[in-house]
């Protein structure tokens, strides 16, 4: 009879795993016997460190709230909001018309919050003699019209273009505001040989090793291993380095708002959390991480 025992265990495990389904935040909030509140927060890789820092600081004061933060890209976060698997979607670009339509078709009403601002730094290898580029030159490089550094006053080296994957909000922002220079009619695309790397770290790593590369990344991610380039406004020759000051006074041309989206106007714990994010204490963390706060300190 002892041979039956392992089988019983297997059946027992199968039954167990079938019953095991992850709890939904709504269910938990309605259940008065459990006081834990879960907030699922997902999306932009640009925002993920900031969102994590916020979640940690908030949980330290409000232990009854548990916030889980994951990255994956703005598109990923918004898709998750549309599929109703997260409470807050982080995005480094504005939600698209098409995504709003998709959301409404699924019964989701996206509500937008601007939570911080970010500059996108143009980066090259520290050994690259180039220090400044105009917005038009950057556009021509990424469109594939400039293919050698010597064409813009550098060494005789091929240019290797690095970009984030297409699910990144930074990618979409860069396409619209830098490559197409903000022209809505433009159909310009990235040169096909642009390397699409899956992470910000991947871009920093490759730029720090390879003297041929040019890349872009949120200012909060830029490390000492790479060189940040000064960029001029469209049609201007005044080169500006990215910083909180040059972003807030509008001098640095490649800066954008960072967003959080919720399904409908937030209620209860979610509302308290978002109000906290928009207030001065949380915005201080924004400055610490190299982003630009939305309110004056």
């Amino acid at each position: 009879m002892t041979k039956i025992i392992p089988l019983t265990i297997i059946f027992f495990l199968i039954t167990l795993s079938a019953c095991d389904s992850p709890p939904n935040s709504q269910d938990i909030e309605n259940n008065s016997t459990i006081n834990q509140i879960y907030i699922e927060n997902k999306g932009s890789d640009t925002i993920v460190n900031l969102a994590l820092a916020w979640a940690e600081a908030y949980q330290a004061v409000n232990p009854e709230v548990q916030i889980s933060v994951t990255g994956g890209g703005s598109g990923t976060g918004i898709a998750a909001l549309i599929n109703n698997t997260v409470d807050i979607a982080n995005a480094s670009r504005r939600i698209k018309e098409k995504e709003i339509e998709n959301a409404k078709a699924n019964g989701i009403e996206p509500v937008e919050f601007i939570i911080a601002r970010d500059a996108i730094a143009i980066i090259v290898n520290p050994n690259n003699p180039i220090n400044e580029l105009t917005l038009e030159q950057i556009s021509a490089i990424y469109a594939g019209d400039i293919n050698n550094w010597k064409e813009i006053g550098g060494e005789d080296r091929p240019i290797v273009r690095l970009s984030r994957e297409t699910n990144s909000g930074t990618h979409v922002y860069f396409l619209e505001e830098v490559l197409r220079l903000g022209d809505n009619e433009s159909k310009l695309l990235f040169s096909t040989d642009t390397l699409l790397l899956p992470s910000s770290e991947g871009i920093i790593k490759e730029v720090s090793q390879n003297p041929n590369t040019i890349g872009y990344d949120g200012l909060g991610y830029v490390t000492e291993e790479v060189k940040v380039i000064a960029v001029s406004q469209k049609g201007s020759k005044e080169y500006i380095f990215p910083s909180a000051t040059t972003v807030n006074n509008g001098q640095y041309p490649i800066a954008r708002d960072l967003y959080m989206y919720t399904n409908g106007y937030p209620q209860g714990a979610l509302k308290i959390y978002l109000d906290w994010i928009l207030a001065s204490e949380a915005q201080l963390i924004v400055t610490e991480l190299g982003f630009v706060p939305i309110i004056k300190q």
């Binding site: 890209g73 598109g75 990923t76 549309i82 998709n102 994957e165 390397l195």
Partner: peptide, 19 residues
């Protein structure tokens, strides 16, 4: 030179698409 494979495309983009 750099190339993009089918598997990497599915892995990189599946998370972003709306059902």
């Amino acid at each position: 030179s750099p190339v993009r494979t089918m598997t990497a495309t599915i892995a990189a983009e599946m998370g972003e698409v709306a059902n």
